[in-house]
Every structure is written in C-alpha cells, then in structure tokens.
Design a protein around this nucleic acid. Structure first.
Lengths: 263, 263
DNA sequence: CCGAGGGAAT
DNA sequence: ATTCCCTCGG
C-alpha cells in the first residue's frame, strides 16, 4: 500500500514537465525514504535523476519498496488536470497494476481521481558515483536557460569554461561565434541572483546544446541551479525541488575535436 | 577602428527587426557623423534608409568612413541574444573582415561578444532627392499598422487619399471593398494620438499593401509615423528612432489602371 | 489562477 | 504548417 500526499501539487506537475520530453517511460521507485526516478533519455545519451524525499510529503506511506513503470507522457497529461493549488495524492494498492492520482482543490470542493495503468519497464539502475567536481557554478536558472537558448541560435555545441573569475559559455557556427562571460558576483540584492563559482581547478568542456536545452525545462522548479564540471566526467545540472529533493541531469562532454578553436 | 556604444541597445534590436524581412544583405555605412544604411528590398521595389546619428551614441568612434556588408538575418539573430536592457557596442578593427557585437547587461555581470563575418556587397547608392510633398500625414504608428493589416485581408492595394479634412485608406478585392477615413484631430490627450494633415494639395495614390505591411515592422520603434505623398513620387513612410535618427521606407505608387473604381 | 488569443520561432 | 511562448482578459 502506497499513499503519498503532496500539498504543493504544482511541484509534481513541474517535475513531470521537466522530464517528460527527455524520457518516455520510466520506473518511479518508492521506498520508505522517498520517491525517486532514474532514467536515460530516449536516445540514451543523457541521464535524469529525480529524488523527492519522504519528509517533503504531508503524508507518506510506503509499506514496501516498489517500482512503478509509467509512461511519462500519459502521467503528465493526467497531472495537467490538477490545478496548480491542488493537493496531489499518489496511491497504489499492493499488487495492483495501476496507480491513482488524486487531486483535491484547496477548498475541497473538487476532488478528482485519475487511474493510470502501470507498465513493465526494464530498469537499468546505473549507479551514479559520487564524484568530486573540479568546478561548481551556481547561478540563476533563468539566466542559464536564456544563455543556452541564445547560443543555440548560433551553434550546436557549447563550451563551458570556468576560471576563478567567472564562467564562460562559448559557441561557434556558420554565421559566427559567441562568447558569454558571467563573472562571479555574490554581492547582489537577492541571493538567488548570485553567481557563485566554486573552483578547485579550472575546467573547460563541450556539450551538445540540444540536451542542455531540454534540461532547462526544469527552470520553473527553482530560481537557481548548479552546474558541476570535471574533465572526463558527465556534467551535472541540478535543480532543487523546493525543500524536498532535486532533479539532476547528467550529460557526457563531447570529445573535443576542433571545438577548441574558440576557447 | 570603429567603436559605437549604444546604451539603449533595444533600439538597434528593433531597427533590425524593422528591416531584416525586407532586405537580406546590406552595407552599413559608418562615418564621423553617423551610422547609416540604404538598400533596396530584395525584389528591388522598395527602398529602406536608416540613419543613426553619432550624437545618439554614448561613445562614437569612427576613424575613417567604412562600409560593412552584413547579412541582416544573421545580424538579427545575434542581436536577439542581447537583452532589451543591454548596452550594445559595435566594434570593427581596421582591415578586419569581421564585426563584433558586444552586449553588456545593466549590472555588468554578463558580458557577451558575438563575432560575425562581413560580406562584400555591391552597393548602389541611389541618391534620394529631397522633395517637397503635396501632403504629409502624421498619425499613431499602431493605428496605421492596424489599418494596413485590416485592408490586406480585403485587397492587395491601398489607395491613400488626402484631403484637408482627413486621410482615407481604401481597397477593393473579390469579396468587397473597404474605406477607412481618419479625420484630422489634434485635440487629443496625448500628442502622439494626434492625426495631423499637412496638405498643400490633395493627393490620391495607390500602393501595394504587401510592401506597406512590411514597413509596419518598424511600429515598435515609434508611437507615431509620417506618410509623405506626392503624385509621381515614391511615398515616404518615416519612423523616428528615438532622438537619434530615423528609418524611412520609400515605395513608388502603382500606376492606376482600374483602381479608380473605388476612389 | 485560468483560458484564450496572438505572435514568433522552427 | 506547426508548436511554443507570452501576453492579455475573464
């Protein structure tokens, strides 16, 4: 028996908007500690890792670990039927092959339940090693999104370079080249506007903008994000989900060929 | 060496939106007095003339006259990467075959530079004679845009007729005819809402709406525009660019055949 | 807060 | 031509 009650239902709606374009089907894993998902994108290049901790739910009951395979497109369709202020409850009976989403309007005047068939999905639980990163950048998520969108109108690869002074995003394409430099800045009015560079070693890596741009679907989840970079390791782009968890996107760097022409 | 710093960068963004659909490639001419462009549209029917005076820039350095051939589509793509509040600097080194656009965010936290290849373009500097016009109409640019859009759903030619009382925009097409009359009106709350007719002689001329409608891309640049009309002369549709210059569109009248059926 | 409409980008 | 985004109105 599973019953997870999330007062801020809009969070779950946003979480699905953040992953459904990247991943078609995935297993949600539910244990006593939380609700999580880990999946490769459909082209098997990027990896998404979601965690919503049990403490973030108003009510959290999960009698035994279960893995529920869902089609994220269909799940997203159902969650779109929840109002942004609705309380969402996820329910599944033991042994059932369905999951139920219940939406309660704030006034309790409207109660909806949507039942969805579960699917069997081969899950490939890639262990994600906890790594030390050479550089970690924290910045406003909207700014990151804007930069990556802008650069993709020029090229299809972004080079992210971190030095102590700041972070540089570069690209090159047929029509020209572009460099956008953000300098470290922690003396801002609102802390979420800060650009914080935590650099152990300078690093410069290339990534396909196509994937980075789909990561930025998570922008509505959090005002800030962190980008963790190390040579030879996949970059980690992390958005916190309120106080209850995170979405992390992993993407392997492109092997540099001629990209270093404009670093 | 060329270095032009424009604090209100959104002006340059809007200027490009105003001409890039009409002209594919053009030379920007830079002299000590200003930054200008003059080009025929790609079908060689309409003419665009842009002037941004040196005084409108915060910093203006142009050591010697140069002509820089640019693809306006690509330039527009790059300028779209500037924020509306950004300060834009245009730079070119002597003898270089590239131009650099630099965008500084208001807070200076973000500095971007975009480099674009210049092109060789045959420029045909048509001298534009300064003419006396029989009638000049000043009116809100949004209203002109709306009228021309509306009329083009009925016909493909607009007849603009000016009398002392007002200005009439007419069209005719398969489904019927349309006449929109604006009477002179200077007693308005906001001066930019005025409709001012400066008539020496009544005039009535026909124009292809297709071109007029692409002129109205400049509507965001200015609340008002002027339409200068004389028989046998191209109409001039002028939008002021803040305090620093203008965009003028020239279009020859259609020779009237059967259009007088609904004048 | 939601839905519809319009404009822009691909 | 389609889809997405953003703005406006209820």
């Amino acid at each position: 028996m599973l019953e997870l009650r999330l007062v801020q239902g809009s969070l779950l709606k946003k979480v699905l908007e953040s992953i459904k374009d990247l991943v078609n089907d995935a297993n949600f894993d539910c244990s006593s500690t939380g609700f999580s998902l880990q999946a490769m994108d459909s082209s098997h290049v990027a990896l998404v890792s979601l965690l919503l901790r049990a403490e973030g739910f108003e009510h959290y009951r999960c009698d035994r670990n279960i893995s529920m395979g869902m089609n994220l497109g269909n799940m997203s369709k159902m969650l779109k039927c929840a109002g942004n202020d609705d309380i969402i409850t996820i329910k599944a009976d033991d042994g059932s092959d369905t999951v139920t989403f219940m939406f309660e309007s704030p006034t309790q005047d409207k109660i909806a339940d949507f039942e969805m068939k579960l699917m069997d999905i081969d899950s490939e639980h890639l262990g994600i090693p906890d790594a030390e990163y050479q550089s970690i950048v924290r910045m406003p998520s909207a700014e990151f999104s804007r930069i990556c969108k802008d650069l993709s109108s020029i090229g299809d690869t972004v080079v992210i370079s971190v030095t102590k002074e700041g972070v540089k995003f570069s690209t090159a394409g047929d029509i020209g080249t572009a460099n956008i430099v953000l300098r470290q800045n922690t003396t801002v009015d609102k802390p979420e506007d800060a650009i914080v560079i935590e650099m152990k070693e300078p690093v410069s890596l290339s990534f396909a903008l196509r994937y980075i741009n789909s990561f930025t679907k998570a922008t509505p989840l959090s005002e800030t994000l962190t980008i963790s970079l190390s040579s030879e390791l996949p970059v980690v782009v992390e958005y916190k989900v309120a106080e209850m968890g995170y979405i992390r996107y992993y993407l392997a760097p492109k092997i540099e060929e001629e990209e270093d022409t404009n670093v």
